[in-house]
């Protein structure tokens, strides 16, 4: 070991001075470097292969099986996919997932940007207080949030019911109506996520130099306009990154919300909760759904990346 390190050191020194063709020394250098590179990259590469690459391929493979995890698996090519694409339940879940991605993203990013703009540069009183308040939902567990929303929406004792009673309106529970159930999930998801993204945008907006706003003020530019010509372009990279994060996390989070709030009742399944329905008894079929989700999530993030690509504004 000592000896090897010693040679490494020589090689460092020799890097500039060694004459071309000093082959024996060079080989020593490369070997030493290789050991170092593999020593540092190797373990994480191993973990990556072990826990990401192999499971993904395993998922592809099992999606071609008919298997309940107890009996013998049977290989059946793309039968699972054929059934899947012809199943109504799958398309309902797909539609719901897209619905959530679209509306939850729009509302969350919209609200988060708005609150961030108000709370970052503005001289709002109680700024810190509001930041904390908005952030609180993010530290609650999804199960708690779902329980809160289920309680609010309960037709037996919920707040919504009491308000409806005030106006003599009959309320039988929005979670029991296929027309309203998805909006309830949207509301819960937006409420949960706004604080987190707001904090990210505040960080982005705080890094915009003050003098730009001062100059804009001097030019008589309104705060509203300032937001669109200064804040938004200069924080675009942050927004773009969070957008991709957000879409992936919506796909994941929607499962938790649906599982806790409705269990897919009233056609409220999303792709992952639909997958989970089959997880225990039809593992191969569930993995086929998993594969579709994987490809879908990947495709959506690539599309978003492409759509939002624009020149980074330097300052």
């Amino acid at each position: 070991m000592e000896d090897r390190v010693e040679r490494l050191e020589t090689s460092e020194r020799g890097k500039t001075g060694a004459p071309a063709g000093a082959n024996p020394v060079r080989r020593e250098i490369d070997k030493g470097k290789l050991v170092f590179i593999f020593g540092t990259v190797g373990p994480s590469l191993l973990l990556f292969v072990l826990f990401v690459i192999i499971p993904v391929f395993y998922m592809f493979y099992t999606s071609l099986l008919r298997w309940d995890r107890i009996g013998e698996p049977q290989f059946q090519w793309f039968e699972n996919y054929r059934v899947l694409f012809r199943s109504d339940g799958f398309w309902v879940a797909f539609r719901n997932t897209v619905f959530l991605i679209f509306f939850v993203t729009i509302f969350t990013i919209g609200f988060a940007l708005f609150f961030a703009a108000v709370l970052s540069k503005g001289k709002t009183k109680g700024k810190t207080f509001f930041r904390v308040v908005f952030y609180i939902p993010n530290i609650l567990s999804i199960v708690v949030i779902s329980a809160i929303f289920s309680a609010i929406l309960s037709p037996s004792y919920g707040v919504v019911k009491e308000i409806a009673n005030l106006f003599n309106v009959r309320y039988t529970g929005w979670l029991g109506n296929p027309d309203t159930v998805m909006w309830c999930i949207v509301a819960a998801m937006v409420w949960q996520a706004v604080g987190y993204y707001m904090v990210m945008y505040i960080a982005g907006m705080d890094s915009v130099p003050d003098h730009l706003y001062e100059a804009a003020d001097l030019e008589g530019c309104s705060h509203f306009r300032q937001f669109f010509v200064i804040t938004l372009p200069l924080t675009w990279e942050v927004i773009r990154t969070t957008l991709t994060f957000f879409i992936i996390s919506t796909i994941n989070m929607s499962f938790l919300f649906v599982d806790a709030m409705t269990q897919g009742e009233m056609n409220s399944h999303v792709l992952l909760s639909f997958m989970y329905e089959y997880f225990g008894s039809q593992y191969g079929y569930a993995m086929a759904i998993g594969t579709v989700v994987f490809v879908f999530a990947y495709a959506v993030s690539l599309i978003i990346q492409a759509l939002t690509r624009r020149e980074v504004v330097e300052y």
Binding site: A147, S156, T172, G173, W174, G176, M261, Q263, E265
Partner: peptide, 8 residues
């Protein structure tokens, strides 16, 4: 109908 789930 609205309560026919694990919560309700």
């Amino acid at each position: 109908v609205a309560q026919a789930n694990t919560d309700g």
